[in-house]
Design a protein around this nucleic acid. Sequence first.
DNA 1: CATTATACCCAAAACGTTTTTGGTGTCAAG
DNA 2: CTTGACACCAAAAACGTTTTGGGTATAATG
Lengths: 341, 341
Amino acid sequence: MAVTIRDVAKRLRLSITTVSRALDGYDDVSKKTRERVIRTARALGYVPSRAARQLRRQRADAIGYVIPGQAPYFTDPFSSEFIAGLGDAATSHNLDLLISTASPDSDAEHHIYARWTQSRPVDGIVLSRLRLKDWRAKYLAQNDFPFVAHGHARLRLDFPYIEMDSRAGFVQLVQHLVARGHRRIAYIGAPAKFTLQAERFAGYQEGLADANLAFDHTLVGESDLTRTGGYQAAQRLLDLNARPTAIICVNDLTAIGAMRAARERGLLVGRDLAIAGYDGTEDSEHTDPPLTTLKQPIYDTAQRLVEMLLQRIAGNSIAEPHVILQPELIVRESTAFDIAS
Amino acid sequence: MAVTIRDVAKRLRLSITTVSRALDGYDDVSKKTRERVIRTARALGYVPSRAARQLRRQRADAIGYVIPGQAPYFTDPFSSEFIAGLGDAATSHNLDLLISTASPDSDAEHHIYARWTQSRPVDGIVLSRLRLKDWRAKYLAQNDFPFVAHGHARLRLDFPYIEMDSRAGFVQLVQHLVARGHRRIAYIGAPAKFTLQAERFAGYQEGLADANLAFDHTLVGESDLTRTGGYQAAQRLLDLNARPTAIICVNDLTAIGAMRAARERGLLVGRDLAIAGYDGTEDSEHTDPPLTTLKQPIYDTAQRLVEMLLQRIAGNSIAEPHVILQPELIVRESTAFDIAS
DNA sequence: CATTATACCCAAAACGTTTTTGGTGTCAAG
DNA sequence: CTTGACACCAAAAACGTTTTGGGTATAATG
């Protein structure tokens, strides 16, 4: 059996009250006793029981995150970098991080949020990959449950979030391609329900309009944000009679899949066809050729979100509750060369 | 405030005992009462408090996993697929999954294991990427804390694990390369402390011996299991006077980095240089050219490990406590062609 | 000497469950 | 009528903390 506060108290012939208060640094216990307590507590290897503390304090000292996994491709570098950021921030604040997986709008997803808000194993939740009408945000707001999000929703709700101005990013990306001589620029997006798709697609269209290029819906494909999704969508685009000379992809994984489709058709990416992605994951540095991308600070964002969430849980007002960051355009060889139009 | 068991009892004019036992399906409460209880419990939205239950039952209904993260490259596809497997298995058993990150043998790592074993927010722990003398396995075994592992250690310890016979896999891989005409086959490994390195390196050497090829230590490089690590190690190998014609990499990420180094030197992977990896991640399908690899069932292994861990926690003996699986050699273009030796 | 201030410490309640132990009422058998 | 069995229910203890509301010395002050 683990050593409890009672054991420490008994050993020192003190009350458990005093031990508790000594360890918590209250000033109504003498310096000498406090030191004695701390010393023997450490000697005995005493660590407070999490469950007991939670029960008494009515908080869990834990935060939760549900990976938006989609069988059979869970392995999204965005998620894993995001989780690393959450995890590191959590441990540095002495919190636990609870992880679950559920595909968007599934029963499992509903179930996990219900459980987490009722049974309260977590004090707050981090949301990512928001949807336009995000039931999670609605539900959590309704139940007054603390949460923060990466990205925002199209709802009349006020919650703290960090968002990338990916719209501006994609405008910039289109500009870049136009400057390289591209006129037929395709776009491979994500399902329409995701906010990120709305933003990025709007940026793509705005970029076209700015350059006086007509929007052509046959040049728009859809991916499920995986490599395979990008591969499939690109196959269709590249088999068009009037093939695009450039493809902008909603994320790096999609772009990696698209590059493969291009290679299979004997196209040299960078020369015959430009491809660009979004996220700036480590993947993008090592593709052939290295991938032009819009980089977002995933790890740092995750950390900052945890800080915001903690403020939210503590009931403090947040200095800057709506953060908007600019993605950084990183031009690499996949779009580096002029195209003969 | 959340609704407690007391509220349900009061509403029904029953004791909390009866409510508790009714909900847990004991047979000393009449069918009629049980149904009434269940109905109003649901109507009131009652969910047992996790903390209270944990405290009373002396278990957490949660398992823990520490991601072997290494700043600044956390984004390991192995980990994220592994986590997805753990997460899905956990939710399907109504468990929570606690995640933390720590780099191997760091203070943070010691700290987290101490906390988890003492403060008991988890009932058991899943280990991965074992080390030859793994202090974690030693520590957990000493403290009689339930754990299972992916891979095993070189210690006199008996714990349940699932392991790949990567040694045999690498022998097979060398054979494959030899059959393609390769004679100078290099190897990029991981730090020596990892079991996986010992296994795979041994397989590489054994394969050479089987083919009567001399072992040449200059053909051995070391990576930190990341793309960048592979890139750097491959640079050295490819700048040798007597350059290898094939490079076997300890994992897919390393191989992806090595491919980049090859491209930068104008070498066509598959024709001028063969490269192979290990893991069979989705990455490997989409590289240029697609990567030959040894595939291991990461997701399924994670799920199975959770099952084993639950048996361990319940104190049951495990039918098959030491599982050894064969990785599957997937030959793709990166090693597909004969080399002119 | 009585009073107050100060410094330290403690008993007990509370958090929300589960489990142990025992109690009451009904009915059938002796 | 007594006894035992059975079905149902409840009181209370326990899990290990934190917090509330004192309490007791000792020293300083009037």
